[in-house]
Structures are given as C-alpha cells and as structure tokens.
Amino acid sequence: MDGFQAYGARKAGGDFNPLTFFRQPQTVVRIVCWLFSIVILACVANEGYVNRPEEVEEFCIFNRNQSACNYAIAMGTMCFLCCIAFLVLDVYFPQITGVKDRKKAVMADIAVSTLWALVWFVGFCLLANQWQASKEEDNPLNEGADAARATVIFSIFSVFTWGGLTLLSLERLKRVSFEEEYNKLFGPPLV
C-alpha cells in the first residue's frame, strides 16, 4: 500500500525531497506566478510614477489614475504573499494525514487560484485601458513606458498562470486515491 495517493500526494509521512517538489507542475507554475507578481510590483513601484517640473506631486503613469497604480501594487503584494503561503502549504501537503483535510487544502487552492485569475483579468483590463487612454503631453519623455507595458503584459500572463493553477488543482481534486476506493468497496484493512 506504499504507492497509494490521496489528492496527488503519497501517504502522510516520509522525508521531504526538494528535487521531487520542484519538479511538480503545480510548484513550477506557482513559482512563475510568484515571479510575475514580483515583476508587476517592481515595475509599478519603481517606474509607475512620473513627475513634471511644474507639478509638485508625482502622478501615476496610467492616465494619471492613482487607483490603477494602487491596484497593481496592492495586487502584486498580495499575490506575492499568497504564492509564498501556498508554496508552504505545498511543502507540508504530504504531511497532512486526513483525506478530508487534504481535500480542504485542494479546495482552498482551487478557490484562491480562480479568484486570482479573475483579479488579474480585472487588473489587465484596468491597466490596459488606462495605459491606452494616457496622453502623450502628460509624459513627453516616455518615462516608465516600458515598465507600464511590462505591467500590462505580465498582468495578462498572470491570468493564464493562475488559470493554469486552477486547472492543476482541479486535476488534483479528481485524483482520488485507490486506497479510498478500495476502502469503500472492501472496508478498511485489518492491519
């Protein structure tokens, strides 16, 4: 019964193998999501604000819409923290002993991944719209233009990576262990 799995993980216990962990598709995609959040956060925080000599305060490069920059920074920060939290959960997932607890973890992963895909889609729409509506006279030297484009591009990439995580989590949910099915048919082992 050593080969039985529940929701994509072996029976609880055993040693942590980093090589196996980092080869899992879910881990790879989650790290990519984490990197995308860093890129978005860095682009907006570093070059998302421009000031003109005649103005005292800086303004957001996305059509002077402070909400667009605030949204990108807030979502980048929260996504960064969420990725770290779920990476930690992925590390400890094989140590979870109860099948019901594993199912709750997988269901939480599905819900959070779906939510983030939607949040990044809204962010992409907002940022792309505001970037398109930006006036050239607001930023004649095109300061931060590359960072703004990168923010928009990585926002749409984030939609697809979080959507991929949702699909991977749904696939994980579908993987019901042979042991569970066996126990339903023949009862628990007598050992």
Rank of each mutant, 00 (worst) to 15 (best):
M1F: 14
D2R: 09
G8E: 03
G8A: 04
A9Q: 00
A9T: 08
K11D: 06
A12C: 06
G13V: 06
G13F: 05
D15T: 12
D15Q: 12
F16I: 10
P18Q: 12
L19R: 14
F22W: 13
R23Y: 00
R23M: 02
R23H: 00
R23I: 00
Q26M: 01
T27V: 10
T27M: 02
V28Q: 05
V29R: 00
I31W: 06
V32K: 03
W34S: 05
L35F: 12
S37L: 05
I38A: 14
V39D: 06
I40T: 14
A42H: 12
A42T: 13
C43W: 03
C43R: 03
V44Q: 08
A45P: 07
N46L: 12
E47A: 11
G48W: 07
Y49D: 10
N51K: 13
P53R: 14
E54L: 08
V56N: 10
E57C: 05
E57Y: 07
E57D: 08
E58N: 11
E58Q: 12
N63S: 09
R64F: 01
R64N: 03
Q66G: 00
A68R: 04
N70Y: 05
A72C: 03
A74C: 11
M78C: 10
M78I: 14
C79P: 00
C79N: 11
L81G: 15
C82V: 08
C83Q: 08
C83L: 06
C83S: 11
A85T: 10
A85L: 08
L87Y: 05
V88K: 04
Y92W: 14
I96Y: 09
T97S: 09
T97I: 12
V99T: 14
V99D: 15
V99L: 09
K100A: 15
D101N: 15
R102Q: 04
K104T: 04
A105M: 09
A108L: 13
A108P: 02
D109V: 06
I110R: 07
I110H: 04
V112L: 08
V112H: 06
S113Y: 03
S113V: 01
S113K: 01
L115M: 15
L115V: 14
L115N: 12
W116Y: 15
A117C: 12
V119E: 04
W120Q: 06
V122Y: 11
V122G: 14
A128Q: 10
A128C: 09
Q132C: 11
Q132H: 15
A133N: 10
E136A: 15
E137P: 01
D138R: 11
D138L: 12
G144M: 07
G144H: 08
A147R: 04
A150I: 09
V152C: 05
I153F: 09
I153K: 07
F157Y: 02
S158F: 00
S158W: 02
V159S: 03
V159T: 06
V159M: 04
V159Y: 04
F160S: 01
T161G: 02
W162Y: 12
G163R: 09
L165Q: 00
L167H: 02
L167C: 01
L168G: 00
S169L: 01
S169N: 01
L170V: 07
E171F: 10
R172L: 03
L173A: 07
R175L: 13
R175I: 10
V176P: 03
F178A: 10
E179N: 01
E180C: 02
Y182S: 10
Y182A: 07
N183T: 14
K184Q: 11
L185H: 13
G187W: 03
L190W: 10
V191N: 13
V191Y: 11
